[in-house]
C-alpha cells in the first residue's frame, strides 16, 4: 500500500493516494487531522474504507477531528527496514488513541518517549514530507 519515490537521496515510503484516502491527505495539507465518518450511521473509523464497516453505506465523509489523543504504546526501532530510515535509527513509533475513537500509528516529536507515560495526552502536529503529503505526528499536549 505504500510507494517509494525515486530521488537522489534514499526516500522514506509515502502514503498511497487513492480515491478513499485522498480526502484525508487533502485535509492534512491544510493542517487538519480527520477520520472517515459514515453519513448514514455516524460510525468513525481510520484508515478509510470503501464502505462503512458497521452499516456498509458508501456515503462517507472525511470529518476533521480535534487532533487530541492519548499515548497507547510506543516502540523504538534499531533496525532500518528502508534506507530512508537508516539516518533516523534508533527512532520511535507510537500508537495514539484519538479522542474520537480510532487509533493511529505515528511518531513522537518534541519529547523523549521515556518521558511520556502510557496514557499521556498528545496533540497532532504536521510535518511536510512532499508537496502532496503533510504527515500527522504527535507531541505531548500542552496546558
Amino acid at each position: 500500500m505504500s510507494a517509494t519515490t525515486a530521488t537522489a537521496t534514499p526516500a522514506k515510503p509515502l502514503p498511497t493516494l487513492d480515491p478513499v484516502s485522498k480526502g484525508f491527505w487533502d485535509l492534512a495539507n491544510r493542517g487538519r487531522l480527520s477520520v472517515q465518518r459514515c453519513d448514514d450511521c455516524g460510525h468513525r473509523h481510520y484508515p478509510g474504507a470503501p464502505v462503512c464497516p458497521r452499516c456498509l453505506s458508501r456515503q462517507q465523509t472525511w470529518e476533521p477531528v480535534s487532533g487530541r489523543g492519548t499515548l497507547l504504546s510506543w516502540v523504538r526501532f534499531h533496525r532500518a527496514y528502508w534506507e530512508g530510515f537508516a539516518p533516523d535509527i534508533p527512532y520511535v513509533v507510537i500508537l495514539v488513541g484519538l479522542e474520537e475513537g480510532p487509533m493511529m500509528i505515528s511518531n513522537l516529536v518534541g519529547a523523549r518517549a521515556e518521558d511520556v507515560p502510557i496514557g499521556a495526552p498528545l496533540e497532532v502536529v504536521f510535518e511536510r514530507a512532499t508537496d502532496q503529503i503533510n504527515l500527522p505526528k504527535f507531541r505531548p499536549r500542552r496546558g
Binding site: M1, S2, T4, K12, P13, L14, P15, P47, F77, Y81, W82, F85, D88, Y91, V93, I105, S106, N107, A129, I133, L135, K137
Partner: peptide, 16 residues
C-alpha cells in the same frame, strides 16, 4: 518488513 511486506503505516517507519 519493509518493501517485502508493505503496510499502511510505512510512512511513519512502522513495519514488521
Amino acid at each position: 518488513g519493509g518493501d517485502e511486506s508493505p503496510g499502511f503505516w510505512d510512512p511513519w517507519g512502522m513495519t514488521s
